[in-house]
Simulated assay, not measured.
Amino acid sequence: MTAVTAARPAALPGALRLGVARTRYELRSYFRERDAVVFIFAYPVIMLAIFATVFGRDGDQIGEGPDAIGFAQYFLPGMVATGVMLSSFQSLAISIAVERDEGALKRLRATPLPPSAYFLGKVGQVLVGCLLQVALLLAVAALVFDVPMPTTAQAWTTFAWVFGLGAAAGAVCGVAFSSVPRSGRSASAVVTPVVLVLQFISGVFFRFDQLPSWMQSVASLFPLKWMAQGMRSVFLPDEALQIEVSGSWQHGATAAVLLAWLVVGLVVGVRTFRWRRRDDG
């Protein structure tokens, strides 16, 4: 008598392996949107060129003597921080809202793909996009504007953890904020003003110590101010501490605020994320 064994369905790969595969898919989709990619990659470079040219046209510098800092060098950290925010928070908040509005998330939820793999793919896309964007910005700053790059392992270590925490916090907050726009068409109109306001009050376009005190206090509640300050500690000499409001780089506070926003983004995202449009039940 021959025993008949029922065929078992093949097991799905692990979430990490699926997340890597999803990252590749997200990157292909991301770079196919050439207009959005060009804007996100070019925006910090263009803004750095504008500010370095306008403020430094007469050879002006911040400070005097051998400790003077060129405007291109001073504005570079803020542009690095805003580039990370564009590639993480703004990119995900808009793209996920559009995917939800077009029904892509609803269809994806009906597949065997674990939700964790989808979000890992988004985070992977953000990290790769941020790395490429920052690499381009630093290359332009060094080659075109002669901005000196850090030369110590300590400085690059600081850059790594500020970049990593900033990109992670921006990504999870972008996922959480993607539920705010009522439709994909309104996503840019809802998300972009938030990013612009934060740039103006966080020391990206202006020296942070010259902003009104109330504006400094508001900016201190949000991660962009701390990312910019953390990046200043990497790309500016210690002599620049004299123009910091606190007189310190505040690395501990930077890490604490970015971690807090990472946790807040995760909690809010888990509680509010929707796979369907508002009018789809």
Rank of each mutant, 00 (worst) to 15 (best):
G56S: 03
W156L: 14
R107P: 03
F89C: 04
E26A: 12
L18G: 00
S179W: 14
L138H: 09
R182I: 04
M231E: 12
Q61I: 06
Q73R: 11
I94H: 05
A36I: 10
R207Q: 12
C173T: 13
K122D: 10
D209C: 14
A110H: 03
T158P: 03
P9Q: 14
I46C: 04
R277A: 13
K122G: 14
E33D: 12
G121V: 12
F206P: 08
L224D: 02
I62L: 13
V54E: 08
Q133H: 06
L196V: 05
A72F: 08
Q242M: 15
R8D: 12
Q216G: 11
A219P: 01
V191E: 00
K122H: 11
A135Q: 11
E244F: 12
A155D: 10
Y43K: 04
S179I: 07
A171V: 12
A68P: 00
A3I: 09
L27V: 07
R17E: 03
V204P: 02
V162G: 09
S91D: 06
P223F: 05
I243Y: 14
A7M: 10
I40T: 13
R34V: 05
A141H: 02
V45W: 08
M79N: 05
A97N: 02
V54N: 12
F235D: 07
T157K: 10
V128L: 03
R271L: 12
T192A: 08
S179A: 15
T254C: 07
F71S: 10
L211A: 02
C130W: 09
V197P: 00
T272G: 07
V134F: 08
A139N: 03
V191N: 01
D58Y: 12
